[in-house]
Nucleic acid binder design. Sequence first.
DNA 1: CTCCTGACCTGAGTGC
DNA 2: TGCACTCAGGTCAGGA
Length: 290
Amino acid sequence: MPELPEVETVCQALRDTTTGEKIVSVWNSGKTMRWPIPENLGEQISGAVITGIRRRGKYVLMDLEVTERPSLTMLIHLGMSGSVRITALNREEDKRAEGEKPHDHLVLMTRDGTKGKSGHHVVLNDPRRFGGIALCRKGDEIHHPLLKTMGIEPLGNAMNGPFVHEAMAAKKTSIKAALLDQRIIAGIGNIYASEALFRAGISPRRQARNIGPERAGRLAHAIVDVLKDAIADGGTSLRDHVQPGGEIGYFVQRLDVYGRDGETCRRCGGQVRMIRQAGRASFYCPSCQR
DNA sequence: CTCCTGACCTGAGTGC
DNA sequence: TGCACTCAGGTCAGGA
């Protein structure tokens, strides 16, 4: 499910609501997600203060300050079907926000210590359990096996035409498959790979090594633009994804090609086509994209 | 090394 | 209505 814009939306919501709050209780389902939930997760993070929320690729990073112990960072990946629900706890209502739902795997109850206010319920829900939770010492996350091979942040300073040109020159696969490779550019998934290629006018079937400097420049711009536009719209809601407050992401209305097989190309009036590459659907307009 | 396929899971949708 | 089947926003272990 969630690609960079959806994960960024989750991060922003967590940052706005829970920064500075203390985790007062932790529950987990005990079910194995992509890998087992860390043992003693509850013991490790109970009492911790959430000092920051960051994002790396499609991972949410939650920084936790624990008294008398080294600070921690919790890594959360949402897999295909993961979502986060945040609900405000209300003291008058006995601090009960809502009950547990099917496929909830982690529930954090927080409290705003400084203002003596009630905090939030933060719930990770993931029906397919392709997501996962990991814990490491803060500062070690760059060396964590899940993150250490990850490529550049597309919204960071390293993203530009020359980078894309050089990175793709070495790849024997299609440009579409290469965009999904998190070791090159982190955070792009199946929706935004198709959308970025449409905006750049590049066929998903083109070999990555045949992306010249000019196309690479257009592609770099297209990636940045489409990701920013999607973040501004709260991401793309298809099946499972909703924003942490329950709102849907409206970028689905702005998709030019993804999920539009047989429909009319908004640029040329031709027909959007779906093909299968590396086991995944790609959508494109054969006349706009070369 | 690189690249591709299949496996991991559940739920929604489709066609008979 | 029920059943069999396909497909889905991601990743990674295997094998070629």
